[in-house]
């Protein structure tokens, strides 16, 4: 790895999967990139005035407009004859890209901008204190989907953003996670060879929000794949072209029990029914994408 595009000295938490994800993504993509970044942890830990961790041209505008800002950047490069200068990347968390910024992202997709959109998916609004997002998985505790007498955590499964991107006709859609860093790098590089909109969703564990030890970030990331909870896939022109195969599929409990956000699913009467629902999601992923 050469010079990091995301310099050290930023203020991310120990074991931050998002900071690691960004470093891997940008080193694979850079240095000829321009990045539009949504409001969120990544912007906060990297850009406290007068310091900056970014070694590339970078803009943070607002929470929900990142894909639209990137659209403007791409259009400007085109009309000014600077298209060859840089690849444009729009990145943000699951809240910024898949919830509040979803309209802007959808517009960016359907207009066919030559932009790589990246969702750094840590499965909740971490910067504001771990509130539920549309990408929070079934059963997870967040501060707005707490378990309680009448609750088993988040009541809905994750919104299927990769398939939503596919439905837009996005020609390259992929998922990745930090533990599989070679796979992640390969996908970033491949995406940038394709003209038009691209979407990559990267699972980035958040020790603070997921309530796991900071030393376990890579292990948790790896288990998400090995349990088939987070399938690593590539969909090109609407067709599934590649998956990261799981040689020995592990039960979801192995992934869940490392994380405090699922603590309520262990040792409580009636928990098995809820664990079974999560296992069913993993099983369905395995079947749907031929992971095993």
């Amino acid at each position: 790895m050469s010079d990091n595009i995301l310099a050290s000295g930023h203020t991310a938490c120990a074991g931050c999967g998002e900071a690691l994800g960004i470093k891997l993504i940008l080193n694979a993509a850079g240095p000829n990139i321009i990045v539009a970044n949504a409001t969120g942890c990544s912007e906060i830990f990297s850009s406290r005035y007068p310091e900056s961790a970014w070694g590339i041209p970078w803009v943070h505008s607002l929470f929900e407009n990142t894909a639209a800002v990137a659209s403007g950047i791409e259009a400007a490069l085109k009309v000014l004859g600077r298209e060859s200068e840089a690849n444009v990347i729009a990145q943000g968390g699951d809240g910024g890209m898949a919830d509040i910024g979803f309209g802007a992202l959808s517009g960016m997709f359907e207009r066919g901008h030559n932009i790589l959109a990246i969702t750094l998916d840590n499965e909740a609004y971490m910067n504001t204190g771990v509130q539920r997002s549309g990408l929070t998985p079934l059963g997870a505790r967040t501060t707005t989907s707490p378990p309680g007498e009448l609750s088993w955590g988040n009541i809905t499964p994750k919104k299927d953003m990769p398939q939503i991107a596919v439905a837009h006709g996005v020609s390259y859609v992929a998922t990745a996670t930090v533990a599989y860093f070679k796979d992640l790098e390969k996908k970033i590089k491949k995406a940038l060879t394709i003209k038009g909109p691209k979407y990559i969703q990267v699972l980035v564990p958040c020790p603070l929000g997921w309530q796991h030890d900071p030393s376990l970030t890579i292990r948790v990331s790896k288990l998400a794949v090995e349990t088939c909870i987070y399938p690593l896939i590539e969909i090109e022109n609407g067709k599934l072209t590649n998956v990261v195969k799981v040689t020995s599929k592990k039960p979801v409990e192995e992934y869940l029990k490392l994380q405090g956000r699922y603590k309520h699913l262990f040792g409580r009467e009636g928990a098995n029914e809820h664990l079974a629902k999560i296992q069913a999601i993993a099983d369905e992923n395995a079947k749907r994408y031929g992971l095993v």
Binding site: N32, N37, E43, S52, W54, V59
Partner: peptide, 10 residues
């Protein structure tokens, strides 16, 4: 990219 700068700090 000729003069990378950070815009929109906090």
């Amino acid at each position: 990219t000729k003069n990378p700068m950070t815009f929109g700090s906090f």
